[in-house]
Design a protein around this nucleic acid. Sequence first.
DNA 1: GTGATTGCAAAGGTTTTGCAGTAAC
DNA 2: GTTACTGCAAAACCTTTGCAATCAC
Lengths: 142, 142
Amino acid sequence: MAEVQKLTERKLRESDRRMTPQRQAVLKALVDLSDEHPTAEEVYQVARQYCSTVGMATVYRSLELFVQMGIINKAPTLDGTTKYELSKEPHDHFVCLKCGRTYEVNVGEKPKENEELAKEGFKVLNVSTVYFGYCSDCLSEK
Amino acid sequence: MAEVQKLTERKLRESDRRMTPQRQAVLKALVDLSDEHPTAEEVYQVARQYCSTVGMATVYRSLELFVQMGIINKAPTLDGTTKYELSKEPHDHFVCLKCGRTYEVNVGEKPKENEELAKEGFKVLNVSTVYFGYCSDCLSEK
DNA sequence: GTGATTGCAAAGGTTTTGCAGTAAC
DNA sequence: GTTACTGCAAAACCTTTGCAATCAC
C-alpha cells in the first residue's frame, strides 16, 4: 500500500505542499484502518504510533487536506461524528440501527441513475448509498 | 398538512406522551420547511414564530422524539450539522459540492439491492442515496 | 393531582483557529 | 532563507443533560 503514499506525495508536490512525518503517520493510520471506518479520534490514536508527537489539530488538518485532494472520503454519521476512509471504487454502506456498525456492501450499479441526473442538469462526481436496518448479528440476537 | 399533526397526536397518545404547544410549533415548522432540509437551528427559528418561548433544547428533544416515532428522518451532512425532513416515500439527495444546496431527486428503484442485502442477512428499513457533484446553477456559472 | 415536559444554563463532545516556533523545500 | 506546517491551548460549534418550575392529562 505504499501506492497510496506515493500518490499522495506526488499530489502534494503538484500543489506546492509538503510531505511531513505527521502527514505520513496519518496516511499510514488510514491504511492500517482501511477495513474500519475510523473517526478522527481513531486515526489520531493509530497515527501517534507512527509519530508520537502528532497533535489532534494536525490530524484534522491532514484529513481535511486529504479529502480535498481526493485521497480519502468523508462520511458523516447519525451520531454526529465523521468517519473517514480511503477512496476506492464506489461502494455503499449499511448501517445497523442497533449496534451502530457500518458495513461496506456492494449492490447494483448506478449508471442509469447518473444518466437521469445528467439529463436534469446535475454533474455527478460521487455516489453514496446508505442502507439503514439491522445486521444479521443483531437480528439473530433478537 | 394537518394530516401529519393528527398522525403525530395519535402516535403520541399511543405511547403515553403529550401534545404540547412546543411540539406543535416544531411540527408546523417542519411542515413549513418541508421543501428545504432544515437544520435544528432553522426549525427553531420558524418554531418560535408559532411558540415564542420555545427553547432550543426543546426543539432538539422534539426532533429526536419525532425521529424515534418515524415522523421525520435525520440526515447527517458533511459540514457536521444534521438536517431533518418529514418522512415520505423513499427518495434520494443530490448535494452540490459548490453551493452546498441539497436537492431531492428521485431516480431508480432499489428492490433488487434490497433483495441482495436480505440474502446476505441484512434487514433493510430505509435507504438513502446521496449523489455528490455540481448542480446546474453552479455548472452554468463556471 | 401526577407525571411528562419545559426553559434555562451549564456541560459535553467534536472540530476549528490563532499564533509563535519549527521544519521541509 | 522562505514559506508551509506543527503543537498547544483556547475558541467555536452543535447537541445533550440536570433540575426546578410548569403544564397536559
